[in-house]
Simulated assay, not measured.
Amino acid sequence: MDNNIIVNESCKTLRALGRESLQNRWGFAALGTLLYMILILVPVLVLDLLFGPEDGSGSGISAIYSLLVTGPMSLGYAMFGISLFRKRETSVAEVFYGFEKFGKALGLYIVMSIFIFLWTLLLIIPGIIAAYRYSLCFFILADNPNIGIMDAIRESKRMMRGNKWKMFCLMLSFIGWGILCIFTLGIGTLWLSPYMQVSVVAFYDIARGSLRARRIDDGFYKAPEIQPTEDPITVYKEEAEGENKEDNNEFKKDDNEFKEDNNES
């Protein structure tokens, strides 16, 4: 059984990482979320209005529509959240990019739903645990478009081993903001949803080993210029490795110059 990384960062730190990634991009993130919600919700409401029974129970056509688009849109929104958190150049249209992998995104959504449903047949709590077990699947697929459906599910299970409670606590920590959104008639969700999404991406990047916290009091990455009272600063491994390579190159350069001076003397 492969070892996995346990996410020890506090929910406060994960949320802080999310907020930092959204600096000067809150409006952009809200616009992308609006497009996502429009495609998910508006057609369902229209189809229910046109074809649904009079008792308002919903139509089969809207259920089929939801089945077809939820997977690709979940993948697209995962891609959008990853781009926001990693501060890549992107556009709000990225929420639709999941349709480029329509078959795989649809298949992943169906398989996940079946697994969660089967666990729910036992009891509600096993179903909730299963939902958290598979919660990273679309982020994994977004990072690895060629990965197989079952491979994405197995990878999510591996990464979430020992991390499900942390993810639950992270989601629970947004409950206050969710209550405030009720008083805004749901409009606040346009900002809360991307905030939650990028915070989950922070969790995901730490769990996959590509992100770590710079702290003065541990051995992850000791930065002398950071004081213990300051908030953690994150750094991607490749960036840290690049810094180390630059330091090594400088050391080699100085060493060569020292040898040349000795030869001349």
Rank of each mutant, 00 (worst) to 15 (best):
N244F: 12
I233V: 15
F139T: 04
F28P: 08
P228A: 14
S199L: 07
K157D: 08
Y195D: 08
G76S: 07
L141H: 01
Y77G: 04
E20M: 09
G18D: 11
A207M: 01
S91I: 05
F183K: 10
L75D: 08
F102I: 11
F220T: 12
G107C: 06
I5M: 13
N263C: 02
A223D: 15
G103D: 04
I116Q: 02
E100P: 13
G186I: 11
T234R: 06
G56W: 12
N8C: 08
P145A: 11
G60P: 07
W191P: 05
Y134C: 01
S193V: 14
I179D: 08
V44M: 08
S173D: 13
L35N: 08
A202Q: 06
D55H: 12
A207S: 11
N4G: 12
V111K: 02
A93E: 11
G52C: 01
Y109K: 05
V69L: 10
V92Q: 06
L180R: 12
E225W: 00
T90G: 04
S193N: 11
L17A: 14
V235Y: 11
V200S: 09
R214D: 03
R161D: 13
L41Y: 14
P224A: 03
S57E: 05
A29D: 09
G162T: 01
G127C: 06
V235P: 11
S57M: 06
L118T: 00
D231C: 02
G32L: 12
P72H: 01
E264H: 04
G76A: 10
L22Q: 09
F85A: 06
L50P: 15
E54M: 12
P228S: 13
K166Y: 06
F99A: 09
P232C: 13
Y65I: 03
E260L: 10
L84E: 00
G242Q: 00
P145T: 08
F138N: 01
Y236K: 11
L190A: 00
S10H: 03
D48G: 02
L47S: 03
F258A: 13
G162M: 00
W119P: 02
K87A: 09
D205E: 15
Q197W: 01
I149M: 13
I129R: 07
T70W: 14
R214Q: 14
A93W: 15
I182C: 15
K253V: 00
Y134I: 00
F96G: 07
F174V: 09
R212G: 09
A207L: 02
L190F: 15
L14H: 10
G188L: 14
S62N: 05
L68Q: 07
F138Y: 04
E257S: 12
N24H: 14
F102P: 13
T234K: 02
M79T: 10
F183L: 15
E94G: 01
Y195T: 05
L106P: 08
S21H: 01
K164N: 05
G27I: 07
Y134V: 05
M37G: 03
N146S: 10
F139K: 01
S199W: 10
